[in-house]
Design a protein around this nucleic acid. Structure first.
Length: 551
DNA sequence: TGGCCGTACTG
DNA sequence: CAGTACG
DNA sequence: GCCA
């Protein structure tokens, strides 16, 4: 890229990154490897390279023709069931792609795929179109009528692949804050204040040295966003938990002058700016960022060129721009559904008969999505196998399946090598696995963070509670449990004894004291009022006298 | 004044 | 182990 | 940073 420009650095960030990446993955099509090419075109000004190195790109990406078709069909059905009102193109953005797979396998690769007539963006951005050629007509015509007519999704539709995997979701839809389309809008003043406090928090987090200020400010910011009344006088906040005099003073300044002098000066230093940028890369925290800064590294570009990055960090760097963008709720739905469909297919491939697949496992949307947020920072899917079958390799298989169907997948955890070494030494990992990665569904512009967590059924309620969050809510609830002498985690409730001194001053039991079937039961056991997911942005509230013991 | 969540993965 | 990340 |  940037070939022609005389001013272009001989080795720009992206060039270096590109080299590293190409070297690391010689077998992956270029477009999949270099998503920023499209991103840059869209978000920066004119692209300097018009002559898209017309890629051969064709073929390569392993077959998958046979499984791709049912996958997308099922995904479409699943999405249609959840969004009956959406226009088809909106529901299935990948239909807009110039070419599709679903080739009858034998279909000739029909030579040089014509460069997508695509106007501007999204150009060669798909690893998907490379798979096949021709017959997107077949695809479109096959599963329904013409996309073109748009709007009318055609009467009969969807055999319905049954989304009951997501039991909770279906049952509680009406309770979701944003299923009612009307998103509660907080007073603008509060949002402004929250943003400023978040900046303060972000600063302390990036610079390090004071995680507790970070904790305090981010907690306050969250509370401000959730406040139902407008802050007109900073003193009002003195009566709100976790706001103290210092913060009230800051907020008073913000209300009066619209800015925080102290924040501005803190942010303006070179070091602060460098750390702020570096820590945006997944896998780079304040320590490593400080480390790099001490070595003279002040940008992601420099970090990449330094060769100091770990494998995970390199993946993070490749996509860190995409990952700054929040994910609209509808896209989260699509990704969760894709995972669910892949899970079902995987179970089927493992011998679970079709009629039993519903009960054999489920994929539940969690995180901010379950809390009803209109957009999310990432996608959290809680997986559970309930038929007693083995969990081993389930996550990997699901991802392989999606990959084969044309989804672009990049691992932050579970890199092949690491996987092996890991398998032998940890017993626990066999039954509880935690995956982090980056994926992009074909037709979507940006790559998104995907978190998968797999638990045995007996952990499900605790896991769901944990995975739904929010972070501050969890910490609050766990803190509260601790005051009762318990330790609450995503696996259960155990005894916790606080010892004097030292930092690791807490001794935990190992036996789960209470097998909860639902979240409600957990709240109840702890003497807490049940809180709907959409309300889990603030602290927990004990009701009456807290129980002394679990029975 | 000292505590501020509990866990999983990486290297 | 420290570091980073997850909610 | 806030709080017990």
């Amino acid at each position: 890229m940037a070939a022609a420009q005389p001013e272009a650095q001989p080795s720009s960030f992206w060039q270096v990154l590109e080299e590293q990446v190409l070297e690391e993955h010689p077998d992956v099509p270029r477009d999949q490897l270099l998503p920023w090419e499209a991103w840059e075109r869209k978000h920066r000004k004119r692209s300097c390279d018009e002559a898209t190195t017309s890629e051969p790109g064709a073929g390569s990406n392993g077959g998958g023709g046979s499984i791709a078709e049912p996958f997308w069909d099922a995904l479409e059905a699943s999405l249609r069931a959840e969004h009956p009102h959406l226009a088809r193109e909106e529901l299935l953005p990948w239909l807009k792609l110039p070419r599709q797979r679903r080739q009858p396998a034998a279909a000739a690769p029909s030579a040089a795929a014509p460069p997508p007539p695509d106007d501007t963006d999204n150009g060669g951005d798909s690893d998907y179109e490379a798979i096949g050629s021709e017959e997107d007509e077949a695809f479109v015509a096959g599963s329904s009528d013409s996309t073109r007519a748009g709007t009318q999704p055609r009467a009969a539709i969807v055999p319905l692949p049954d989304t009951s995997g997501n039991r909770w979701a279906s049952r509680n839809k009406h309770k979701w804050q944003c299923q009612s389309t009307t998103t509660k809008t907080a007073p603008a003043t509060n949002l402004f204040l929250a943003d400023e406090l978040d900046k303060l928090a972000a600063h302390y987090k990036a610079v390090g040295n004071d995680e507790w200020r970070y904790f305090a400010f981010s907690k306050q910011a969250k509370k401000l966003r959730d406040l139902t009344w407008e802050v007109t006088d900073a003193k009002q906040l003195l009566s709100v938990r976790s706001f103290g005099q210092k913060s009230v003073d800051k907020i008073a300044e913000l209300l009066a002058t619209g800015a925080l002098r102290r924040l501005e000066t803190m942010q303006s230093t070179d070091r602060a700016q460098a750390l702020a940028e570096l820590t945006k890369v997944h896998g780079v925290g304040c320590k490593i960022a400080s480390d790099w800064y001490a070595k003279g590294i002040t940008s992601v570009e420099a970090a990449v060129q330094s060769g100091l990055m770990t494998a995970t960090q390199r993946v993070g760097a490749r996509f860190y721009k995409d990952l700054q963008v929040r994910i609209p709720r509808a896209e989260v739905t699509a990704i969760v559904d894709a995972v669910r469909v892949a899970l079902r297919a995987t179970l089927g491939a493992r011998g679970v008969p079709a009629h039993a697949i519903d009960g054999a496992g489920d994929a539940t949307a969690s995180g901010s999505y379950r809390r009803g947020k209109p957009s999310s920072g990432d996608v959290d899917v809680l997986l559970c196998r309930r038929d007693g079958g083995s969990d081993e390799g389930l996550i990997e298989q699901i991802l392989e399946y999606m990959k084969a169907a044309g989804v672009s997948v990049h691992h932050l955890t579970h890199e092949e090598e690491v996987q092996r070494g890991r398998a032998q030494r940890s017993v626990r990992t066999a039954t509880c696995s935690s995956y982090r990665g980056i994926i992009r569904l074909p037709g979507y512009e940006l790559h998104r963070r995907l978190d998968l967590k797999l638990y045995p059924p007996e952990d499900f309620a605790y896991a769901l509670l944990y995975f739904t969050g929010s972070d501050h809510f969890n910490r609050s609830m766990r803190h509260y449990a601790k005051t009762l002498g318990y330790s609450l985690s995503d696996h259960g409730i155990v005894h916790a004894v606080k010892m004097a001194g030292g930092k690791d001053n807490c001794v935990r039991g190992t036996k789960n004291l209470f097998e909860a079937r639902t979240e409600q039961e957990i709240f109840e056991k702890l003497g807490l009022q049940y809180v709907e997911p959409s309300q889990r942005n603030t602290d927990v509230v004990p009701i009456g006298d807290a129980p002394r013991r679990l029975q």
